[in-house]
Design a protein around this nucleic acid. Structure first.
Ligand code: FES
Ligand code: FES
Lengths: 168, 168
DNA sequence: GTCATACTGGACTAAGATAGTCCCATATGC
DNA sequence: GCATATGGGACTATCTTAGTCCAGTATGAC
């Protein structure tokens, strides 16, 4: 119920990746390699994120993407707003009150109450929250290498589709 | 963002209708007529709701549907659970932890935090809340007729599709 | 100046979810 | 027996999503 789209999930992973490298300018190919997502998908998402002013882009050689603001200034609501559009919980709770009969409908007011509750929760979570490692890596950190050097890179692939290099 | 499906919205309207008539056994045709939804759609939804134990059905002549429990005992989470399935916010937050790498993924824990927040909000809203009229009908009540006699009937059509009688 | 690198914009297809309809079987009261 | 209902499921049209690809443009390195 109430699922967010897979692209949004991917987009969040990308943002997390960028958040871990505040001073680097990462090209899409880099991001794809590190997140293990397919390159075209990453490109598409980065374009969307740039258009939504969540990341800043630099064109040309040595170009790439950076977060537009510090991670703490980007909320989950921002991310969903950019990647899923400004749709409300129901079609009636959209801004463009297309349902002109709202006052007569018993359902709308309570749905909107719920809608506000969700928005509040979304506002409370920042990208920084999303990015912080929940706990230590359980298995993969045997090498004793500095976590600082490769903050998010060794994270295992998220799910078993849309990997890179799937082109035959 | 985070939209619930239109059928779920319809289903809620149907439940609200039944909630207003706790002691009647309403056939689907009745519900369709009063909610102004198309009959086949109403039938389908009532079947789903019956299977999800939110409404009780009586077969045969004089049969129909009633709420399985008082409206205050049916939460929004129940409704969404029955009509949209038990899907989590992301595919990773489903019960069947298909993403075996959860511990390594930075994103999951915060998404699940959000998921819990939403569930809590859903649990807090009951069908009784959804059913209570938000305020008086603004225009339609000029006739001075008793509201009690037709509690939810004069509510205007919810949106401009899927009306009854669309069959040529 | 030329070239390789990278973003920009949009078109396009395949797959999947959603909405809506219809049919046949079964139960029940009159 | 028959009209009235629900139960179960199949089916199609349509919209959305996911994923890919290409032609264009900007920019730094050589
Ligand atoms: S991608 Fe599955 S837990 Fe993060
Ligand atoms: S159906 Fe639109 S406000 Fe209720």
């Amino acid at each position: 119920m109430l699922r967010i789209s897979r692209l949004t999930d991917y987009g969040t992973m990308i943002l997390v990746h960028l958040a871990a490298r505040p001073d680097e300018c990462c090209p899409a190919s880099d991001v794809a390699a590190h997140t293990r997502l397919a390159l075209p998908t990453v490109q598409k998402l980065l374009k969307l994120l740039a258009r939504g002013d969540l990341v800043r882009s630099v064109r040309g050689a040595e170009g790439g993407y950076t977060l537009a603001r510090p991670a703490s200034g980007i909320s989950a609501a921002d991310i969903l707003g950019v990647l899923e559009g400004p749709l409300g919980l129901t079609e009636c709770s959209t801004e463009s009150h297309q349902c002109e009969l709202e006052a007569g409908c018993q359902v709308s007011s309570a749905w909107q109450k719920l809608d506000r509750a969700i928005r509040r929760a979304l506002d409370d979570i920042s990208l920084a929250d999303l990015a912080e490692p929940p706990r230590e890596f359980p298995v993969l950190n045997l090498s004793g290498r500095s976590l600082q050097a490769r903050p998010a890179t060794p994270a295992p692939p998220p799910r078993n589709r849309n990997r890179t290099g799937a082109r035959p």
